[in-house]
């Protein structure tokens, strides 16, 4: 039996679509609720980010509970940046007990890029160790060897970076993640489909589902900003140029067009198993993008 609804979909062979919602700073969840409602039936699962870019927010776990309450399929993003192994295990136990059964294991952005620069970063574990830890818990033991009362089971995901400029060490890490038990991969933002194809040639040997990360760009300025400030994201010059060519207020339209084009090509050419759309604050546009890309769930 599948561990979660999402795992079932992953194994069904259909083209998978996920997207993400970032929690707000504060307790007013109305915006999040609105977005979840808008998206929950259009995608296969919704990721809730974990203090994205190291900026303190409402917790990922809280967001996932909301998704579950609203009858969506949540993916819990879990970084090792802020919690040591005790806290991580505890949160996982709690998540499972509340029906959250998908987890995306991440190392997390460094504290340095966020809004609490003076904080102590934890990194007690890294993403690979986190995956292993979950698998250990599934066997009925915490990682110190203590017995766990009751079941734990997760559909585990991880990330990969197909267009990294030093790809080989990334591939080694990818191997380790899959070996350790990652079932699906949501990649960093992809703009260069050749890089994706090359990555897929490699990834195909493994039993893991790859969801290509699609970032919605709103302008060339945003793209340049991301290049300079967001870890791991590199928008290639041809895309920036494409965005720069259009009139000022048409940037977003162009961004949508680019995202749609990427999704369409990926699907039509069957490049990988699905896409993961990161709308970076413009979640309400995701349905439009899906529609234009001809994807209906």
């Amino acid at each position: 039996m599948a561990k979660s609804l999402f795992e079932e979909k992953l194994n069904s062979g259909k083209f998978i679509v996920t997207t993400e919602v970032g929690p707000q700073k504060g307790t007013d969840t109305s915006e999040m609720v609105h977005q979840i409602n808008l998206l929950k039936d259009k995608v296969d699962a919704i990721n809730i980010t974990d203090h994205q870019s190291s900026v303190m927010r409402f917790p990922s776990l809280g967001g996932c509970l909301l998704v579950a309450e609203l009858c969506g399929e949540p993916i819990l993003q879990m970084t090792t940046r802020d919690r040591n192994r005790l806290a991580l295990q505890a949160d996982l136990l709690f998540a499972y007990s509340r029906g959250i059964k998908n987890v995306l294991c991440l190392t997390g952005d460094s504290i340095e890029v966020g809004d609490h620069k003076e904080a102590k970063s934890v990194f007690d574990l890294d993403s690979v160790q986190l995956i292993r830890m979950i698998r250990t818990m599934e066997s009925g033991k915490d990682i110190a060897g203590g017995c766990l009362k009751g079941n734990v089971e997760f559909c585990i995901g991880a990330t990969a970076h197909p267009s990294a400029d030093f790809i080989e060490p990334q591939l080694i890490k990818f191997d380790k993640k899959v070996e350790s038990g990652a079932q699906f991969i949501q990649t960093q933002g992809i703009f260069d489909l050749d890089a994706l194809s090359r990555f897929m040639q490699y990834a195909h040997q493994f039993n893991v589902k790859i969801l290509a990360g699609i970032i919605l760009l709103a302008s060339d300025r945003m793209a340049t900003y991301m290049n300079n400030n967001v870890p791991g994201i590199t928008v290639p010059p041809n895309i920036i140029e494409e965005l720069a060519c259009v009139e000022k207020d048409k940037g977003l339209k162009k961004g949508i067009e680019i995202a749609v084009r990427l999704i369409k090509t990926i699907k039509e050419e069957n490049l990988c198993h699905g896409v993961h759309i990161m709308a970076v604050g413009r979640e309400k546009l995701v349905p439009e993008i899906l529609e234009e890309a001809g994807i209906m769930t």
């Binding site: 460094s110 400029d165 380790k176 590199t234």
Partner: peptide
């Protein structure tokens, strides 16, 4: 910057650390 043990995070650009 993260003291991680199983390979790089996905943050490096041009061989330089994200932090």
């Amino acid at each position: 910057a993260k003291g991680i043990l199983n390979g790089p995070c996905a943050g490096a650009k041009g061989g330089k650390c994200e932090a």
